[in-house]
Amino acid sequence: MQRHLQSLAFGLVIVAVVPYTVLKLVWLAGSEIGLKNAAAVAEAESSRMLVGNTVTIVLDLLAVALAYALIRPVGRKVPAWVVLLLAGAATGLLAPILLGLPLGMVVQLATSGNVRTSGMDNLEPWVFGLVYGGFALMAVALCVLLWLYVVDRWAGILAAPPRPPALWVVVAGALGLLPFGAGMLWWGLMGPGGGGPQAMDATAQRTVLVVTGILAVAAFLAPYATPRRESYSRAAWLVTWTGCAVAALQGPTQVLLANGGNPTPVMIVLALITTPGSCLYGWMVLRGRLAAGEGRGQSSTGVALAAEGGAH
């Protein structure tokens, strides 16, 4: 059963990646397919978009490589830091879209009768369906593959909940996660104003900001919960992982993409403190769990991951 589920999820990753990658390739080749006007063509031919399209194609290929490794026996031999890095990048980029955009579109449709955003002025509607539908499909498929992989390889780590790290790490995590989370929540609820992520005014987009903010705050608080069942422990780890990854990736993403690559000073400052703070907090929470397991002589799973992490 698990094998069939893995094969299905891997197939969905391919289905999600191929149309999006083809679209990016034809844009890089100079095609105007899906572009509605001269402004959109000029933007597609700009240096920023040429670099961005190239980077996203590389990210798509890495997503396929990650998915393939997760379903093959050789995947168990991949160093832990490689898995964590690629999985963290995928989680941070895709989780807000998967969790926030469908909900935001429903809310916007119910309140405004449409799902229009400012970017739709330059692109054909089918482009948004292809791009964001593909993102959501890839997010679901990778989520399934990653969860099965982690439970299979590192089940011992998930058996006990995450715990708060040392005080100095808590301070760094608070600086990295809480201002960013509060900012995303404020801009999502009240609008971006002059300091937030520009061109994120539509209800669907603002819902993504709200979800991003909730995940960041929840990641900081999750180690302070005291779940008594293993299922709750796994949920706490999932929240910690997702929120830290989202904060680490969405700060730079907003800087690079919001308002046509012209971020506000507030966004730049948030990104500079959020990414290192969230990465440090998440890593030290994990290290604390590994150290506690090793100290109690628990399964070699945790010890092996600790050794891998230390070696790299």
Rank of each mutant, 00 (worst) to 15 (best):
S7C: 11
S7A: 15
S7M: 13
A9G: 08
G11L: 01
G11H: 03
L12D: 05
L12S: 07
L12K: 05
V13G: 04
V13S: 03
I14K: 04
I14L: 14
V15D: 05
A16I: 01
V18A: 12
T21R: 09
T21Y: 06
V22Y: 11
K24Y: 09
L25W: 12
V26L: 13
W27Y: 04
L28F: 07
A29E: 04
G30L: 00
L35D: 05
K36S: 10
N37C: 00
N37V: 01
A39S: 13
V41T: 07
A42C: 07
E43I: 06
A44H: 10
A44M: 13
E45L: 12
S47G: 12
L50G: 15
L50T: 12
V51G: 12
G52R: 08
G52K: 09
N53M: 10
N53K: 10
N53H: 13
T54I: 09
T56F: 01
I57H: 00
I57D: 02
V58W: 08
V58S: 12
L59S: 12
L59R: 07
D60K: 08
L61A: 14
L62C: 13
A65M: 11
L66I: 03
Y68S: 13
A69G: 13
A69M: 09
I71N: 05
P73A: 05
V74H: 11
V74W: 14
V74D: 10
R76S: 14
K77M: 08
K77P: 00
V78M: 02
V78T: 01
W81T: 09
W81S: 13
V82D: 02
V83E: 06
L86I: 03
A87G: 15
G88E: 05
T91N: 10
L93K: 10
L93P: 06
L94C: 03
P96A: 05
P96M: 01
P96K: 02
I97E: 10
L98H: 05
L101W: 02
P102R: 01
P102I: 01
L103H: 09
G104A: 03
M105T: 07
M105G: 11
Q108S: 01
Q108E: 02
Q108H: 01
L109G: 15
A110Q: 14
T111L: 15
T111M: 14
